[in-house]
Design a protein around this nucleic acid. Structure first.
Lengths: 139, 139
DNA sequence: TCAACATTGATGCGTTTGCATTTAAATAAC
DNA sequence: GTTATTTAAATGCAAACGCATCAATGTTGA
């Protein structure tokens, strides 16, 4: 139990920074950008409120606010105030954002393959995914 | 494989920030302090070079340098220049540092139990630890 | 011996995070 | 209808991170 925790810490950190490193080396923005854009890309033609992004990506309110600042500045995302609830902001991915997703995916997939796929069989990877999912199940 | 990666990202982040949150709520310093102090505590009477800490904790050189600045300032660690190799710095945990480890452990263990133990059986936790270890095996 | 190179660690600078607070709009209470 | 409360998002500030570079010491090789 303790060792599951310890390994989760170490392996999680190691694999994450390895993948991040590969992406950075290929000249791409950080993984968090990809996460946000991917989530937005699921909403075909639609847009999400920032609040929804928070819960889907498990990010803090200010983190979403700021990462969107950067994504807007980079042209990958648009933000506009909603008419019905003028507190909210509708967030939409742009064509450039979709393009970035497409461009990043080959490098990203290769990095995952290299740093996750190499040491685990398909069955083991599946089991790992199952256990990790169970780990954060409600309650 | 992809889903193992995705889950590793999400669950790792969720569990880590939950445990960190519990520790912070109990008035303790961040987990990274605990990691460093624990590693130092293994060296009975001895001290480690910063460079050794880097490789053991998988931290970057500057990260070690800075976290030690904070630990020294807080009185949990001592640093002194080595006589034989005057580039190196011998890092030693202080009595206060050992005390902090002892004080933190109950809260830390409870947090692990709460956020890792709740959803997994002992056997599952063991299997998870095994898979994660394999994940970051050499090669 | 002395010049190149390697290793250890610190640090300046810009970016990112975390916390707390603020602003603005919507909803509830009276 | 006016005032409190709640909700959505932004922001000022301090701490932490990442990168690149620097300073100091050690090692190697001519």
């Amino acid at each position: 139990m303790i060792s599951a925790w310890a390994q989760l810490l170490r392996s999680g950190h190691a694999v994450l920074s390895a993948v991040e490193g590969d992406l950075k080396a290929a000249g791409f923005p950080p993984l968090s950008w990809y996460d946000v854009l991917l989530e937005l890309s699921f909403e075909s033609e639609e847009s999400l409120r920032q609040h929804d992004l928070e819960s889907r990506l498990l990010l803090r309110q200010y983190a979403v606010s700021r990462i969107l600042d950067r994504l807007v500045k980079a042209g990958y995302v648009k933000r506009k105030t909603l008419s019905k609830d003028r507190r909210g902001r509708a967030v939409t991915i742009t064509a450039a954002g979709c393009g970035l997703l497409r461009d990043m995916w080959p490098s990203y997939a290769a990095a995952i393959e290299r740093h996750v796929g190499t040491n685990l069989s398909a069955g083991e990877a599946e089991e790992l995914a199952r256990l990790l999912t169970k780990l954060t199940a409600p309650q």
